[in-house]
């Protein structure tokens, strides 16, 4: 069988950067079609609102590349926000440390369960998703109590900014760069790919499979908590009704970004592009006056299905050449 390197390369580029290309194309189309789309204000609003999803999606990218899934991030996001608002009455440090410690602990426990007992990530994090939302409701009187942010330094973390962008956007950018280095240029990152690509093989090659998995879920928990913290700072309160179904949006963004749900392949750039793509779709639908935002979900869903089909075809093209 002869392989055609050209075709294979094309399919690999499409796989890795397809989301970025579609994002660019949509941005261009949007700019031409709607006058108010290509304004600095609109761009900033897309980027700002995407940054929270993006932080969670960075953690999810590691989880999915390692061959797992984390359904608890939506609950951790809202839990982190409520804890941060609650903690803000004791100052900036507690507002940051309390939610991160709690969400990190949940991630760690989930990771240990998955790595040490071999339970399916789907089940473990589903339990986490339900349990953590329950915890959040417990500390907020069934969601009736909305803690308000008392610390102004903490509030500035979510609302202040530079050059028209808020701090969460800059934090997201920093995290994205750090995650890229971590994934591509450290032994840990290589281990994540190896575990997701061929777990028994990785074990035979000496990869610490269990430890890698624990770190991945710990990271995902921490990042979901952090996103919740920043969101609470932005809203100046610990809103209890957020984050329902957020994990699915995040997973969708990661997969649209070219990370394989089966594990072993993907990257941060794709994920960021995937998150922005969903943000742009939302914005475009808002521009079309007579469409409700419910259509955003229809379009996102269709797009996701399209991407998964494309990934299968591209994967086949790469294998058979």
């Amino acid at each position: 069988m002869t392989r055609s390197p050209g075709r294979e390369q094309v399919s690999r580029v499409l796989q890795q950067h397809g989301a970025l290309m579609v994002l660019a194309a949509l941005a261009i189309v949007g700019s031409i079609a709607f006058d108010s789309f290509a304004t600095a204000g609109n761009a900033a609003s897309i980027v700002v609102s995407s940054s929270f999803t993006a932080i969670i999606a960075i953690g999810m990218t590691f989880v999915i590349i390692s061959g797992g899934i984390d359904l608890s991030v939506g609950s951790l996001f809202v839990f982190g926000g409520v804890l941060a608002a609650y903690g803000s009455q004791y100052g900036l440090f507690v507002a940051l440390a309390l939610p991160l410690a709690a969400c990190g602990l949940v991630g760690l426990l989930q990771g240990l369960l998955i790595a040490r007992t071999g339970m399916a990530p789907f089940i473990v994090t589903l339990a986490g998703m339900l349990g953590v939302r329950g915890l959040m409701l417990a500390i907020s009187d069934e969601g009736a109590t909305t803690y308000l942010v008392k610390d102004s330094a903490f509030a500035r973390l979510g609302q202040g900014g530079l050059l028209g962008l808020t701090w969460p956007v800059y934090i997201t950018a920093l995290l994205a760069v750090a995650a890229m280095v971590l994934l591509q240029r450290t032994a840990f990152g290589q281990n994540v790919y190896a575990v997701g690509g061929n777990e028994p093989g990785a074990a035979l090659m000496g990869v610490p499979v269990a430890r890698t998995k624990v770190y991945v879920y710990l990271m995902s928990g921490l990042l979901a908590g952090l996103a919740g913290v920043l969101n609470a700072a932005r809203l100046s309160s610990g809103v209890t009704i957020l984050g329902i179904g957020l994990e699915l949006d995040v997973i969708a963004a990661v997969v649209i970004g070219g990370t394989l749900l089966t594990g072993g392949a993907g990257g941060i750039t794709g994920t960021i592009a995937g998150v922005l793509l969903l943000g742009v779709i939302q914005s475009l639908i808002n521009q079309v006056g007579n469409l409700t935002s419910a259509f955003q979900q229809v379009v996102s869903g269709l797009f996701l299905a399209l991407v998964v089909v494309a990934q299968r075809l591209l994967g086949r093209a790469q294998r058979l050449g």
Partner: peptide, 26 residues
């Protein structure tokens, strides 16, 4: 073959003993 099919040849070959540069980065 017990390697990781989706990783590059070099990364498969060097997994676990990648040469490190500054800051411990590969």
């Amino acid at each position: 073959v017990n390697l990781v099919p989706m990783m590059s040849v070099a990364r498969n070959l060097m997994l676990g003993r990648e040469p490190r540069g500054r800051l411990g980065v590969i």
